[in-house]
Design a protein around this nucleic acid. Structure first.
Ligand SMILES: [Mn+2]
Ligand SMILES: [Mn+2]
Ligand SMILES: [Mn+2]
Ligand SMILES: [Mn+2]
Lengths: 217, 217
DNA sequence: ACAAATTTTTAGACAAGTCTAAAAAAAATT
DNA sequence: AATTTTTTTTAGACTTGTCTAAAAATTTGT
């Protein structure tokens, strides 16, 4: 059985590079906010357990086993987020930190029952896909709102940023996942974008916001 | 913030002696299945944090602060048990081990929302009381089924034993909390007891079972 | 191609939580 | 009251995960 710490390293590696590419010691160290020296130590331990391939000075790549642990953690994390959001009515900016703890609960049975209880959701409250029990998931085709031309229509399906700050800002602007939008006008002055949502509500989004929203393609 | 380990020590102390009495090093060591030497070390640390009163060779007693941590843990443990039992349909013998992990999740907001989601339950799936946010709870007056005379009536409201084995046995016998029973006959041969449940079902309980079921008084 | 900057590893230390073995204190027996 | 048994504490060691400082390797820039 893996410790929470080991699990967090694997997840950090997966988030940095997925299962194919390799990740540098420094990248992991930044994600986890630990020293590079500590990371090196841990990478050796995880390599001993066949969770990743490690070659001195060359960075690491997850093994199949390591990838499986990572995606399973992400599955648990996102299922718990759905639970907190849908059943306990937390805001979407509040669920991540709690799920960060809940994802480490060890009980395969619990995950499957939670999944069923939630109605087998496909995405978490931020629009990110929930891996199935085998660790597989589909990534929807999407494009940044800021990339779309005037006149284009689409639906908000994901976020390029996940900070609490950003999520709270979206709440304040009444922007949620699933909204159908149409681009009315793009302002070259500051790259802000005027959009229409629903029948007749119009609002102007800053460039920063437009660059952080994914639209279906 | 306390570590899971520290929390488990406090809970073990509370379970052994409540908040009034004092507990011996050995008793804690048995409950937690760690060496007496380790327990002594930890007791000093917890005393430094004012969670308990420690005097060499005299055992320990929780402080108000220690008692508060303990009852809050028990509150969380039992609320999660209700969740697992009522919402995820786990059997009552399966919930304890998972709740043992969930009780350490740190989020005051989560506990209160879970409580509301569950409809503010007063007892857990084993009939044990759930402390409120202040750590207070009422213990229902009860008596062992084995103590009742022939002809007595009552309702099964609690368990004197919590082993998985016992819980599975009760499942096999179709005995649950809330059942109304009447004592038909007590057999002096082996102290088994014949009871009637509901309209017309009669069954004989072994002495061991009768000594492990609480009836309301 | 060499020097400088950056990244990564090693070395040595520390805190938390655990253990076993031995010493000290307390409790039980005779 | 003295002896034996049991409980508790101390001493010293080990593991996990972390750190800082220094050394080694790699990458970048000229
Ligand atoms: Mn998250
Ligand atoms: Mn985590
Ligand atoms: Mn329990
Ligand atoms: Mn616990």
């Amino acid at each position: 059985m893996l410790s929470q710490t080991e699990e967090n390293y694997l997840k950090a590696i997966y988030k940095n590079a997925g299962a194919e590419q390799s990740v540098s010691t420094n990248a992991i160290s930044k994600t986890l906010k630990t020293s590079a020296a500590s990371v090196t130590d841990m990478l050796k331990k995880l390599a001993d357990k066949d969770l990743l391939h490690y070659e001195k000075y060359k960075g690491v790549r997850l093994t199949d086993s390591g990838r499986s642990v990572s995606t399973h953690l992400i599955r648990k994390h996102r299922l718990w987020e759905v639970f907190l959001y849908k059943k306990l009515n937390f805001k979407w900016g509040e669920v991540h930190d709690i799920a960060e703890q809940l994802e480490h609960i060890q009980s395969p049975e619990l995950v499957e029952r939670l999944d069923a209880f939630l109605g087998f959701p496909k995405v978490d409250p931020h629009g990110d896909p929930i891996p199935d029990a085998e660790g597989n998931y589909e990534v929807e085709e999407k494009v940044l709102l800021s990339e779309l031309p005037e006149g284009a229509r689409g639906k908000i399906i994901g976020l390029a940023e996940h900070s609490k700050n950003f999520l709270a800002h979206l709440d304040a602007m009444d922007i949620k996942l699933g909204l159908n939008i149409k681009i009315i006008e793009k302002f070259s002055f500051d790259n802000s974008i005027k959009i229409k949502i629903k029948p007749d509500k119009v609002l102007v989004l800053s460039a920063k916001v437009a660059q952080s929203l994914f639209i279906n393609k």
